[in-house]
Computed example of a mutant assay.
Amino acid sequence: MENNKTWHEQHESSCSFGDHLADKVTNIMGSWRFIIIQTAIILVWAGINLTAYLLHWDPYPFILLNLVFSIQSAYAAPIIMMAQNRQSARDRVQANDDYMTNLESKREIEELQVGLKRLESEKLDTIIAMLQDIRKDRSYVTE
């Protein structure tokens, strides 16, 4: 049953919960949606802290916001690297599978070429035999 699976199915079945989580986090953080939402949060954060008269939880230069981004980066970078490593592993498996498929295709093409050459030789031998028979028949007629 394992051999009937595609490389992608084999890879997905071998992934742990952490692998899937790293992929999901990377997919989210690598999207325009995430960038737009994060930009909106930054603008709201800065806007509230610059204009608020009473509640400045993070006054300019936004040290708390900087801390939040530092924590986000500290976790995001290794998660993204895990996902990249898994992508590299997937690419290696796929490349190996493609290579094996190409080798099999090459072998089949070579077998077809040998078969076609054999058929061509047989046809040429048949044509030569037919021409020799025609020559023999003509030589009897001209005598």
Rank of each mutant, 00 (worst) to 15 (best):
N4F: 04
K5D: 09
K5V: 00
T6W: 05
W7D: 07
H8I: 10
E9S: 04
Q10R: 13
Q10V: 05
H11R: 10
E12L: 01
S13M: 08
S14E: 11
S14M: 09
S14G: 12
S16C: 04
F17W: 15
G18R: 05
D23N: 02
K24R: 04
T26C: 03
N27V: 03
I28Y: 08
M29Y: 03
M29W: 00
W32E: 08
R33G: 14
R33C: 13
F34T: 04
I37L: 11
I37E: 01
Q38G: 00
T39H: 06
T39K: 10
A40I: 14
A40E: 02
A40L: 06
A40F: 09
I42Q: 03
I42Y: 06
L43R: 03
L43F: 14
V44P: 00
A46Y: 10
G47E: 07
G47Q: 09
G47N: 13
L50D: 14
Y53F: 06
Y53N: 11
L54P: 03
L55T: 03
W57A: 05
D58M: 08
Y60G: 02
Y60L: 04
F62I: 03
N66L: 12
V68C: 02
F69S: 09
I71A: 07
I71D: 00
I71S: 01
Q72C: 05
Q72V: 00
S73Y: 06
S73W: 00
S73T: 00
S73H: 07
A74E: 02
I79L: 10
I79Y: 02
I79N: 07
I80Q: 00
M82K: 09
A83V: 03
R86K: 13
S88N: 13
S88Q: 04
D91Y: 07
D91A: 06
R92W: 00
Q94M: 03
Q94K: 11
N96G: 07
N96T: 04
D97T: 05
D98W: 03
Y99G: 08
Y99E: 12
M100D: 00
T101M: 13
T101A: 15
N102V: 10
L103H: 11
L103G: 03
L103K: 13
E104G: 14
E104K: 15
S105R: 15
S105N: 15
K106C: 11
E108Y: 07
E110N: 15
E110I: 12
E111G: 12
E111P: 01
E111H: 15
L112K: 07
L116N: 07
R118V: 06
E122A: 03
I127F: 14
I128K: 13
I128A: 07
I128C: 04
A129T: 09
A129H: 02
M130P: 03
M130R: 14
L131H: 09
Q132D: 15
D133P: 11
R135T: 12
D137K: 12
R138W: 11
V141Q: 15
V141L: 13
T142A: 15
T142K: 12
T142D: 15
E143C: 14
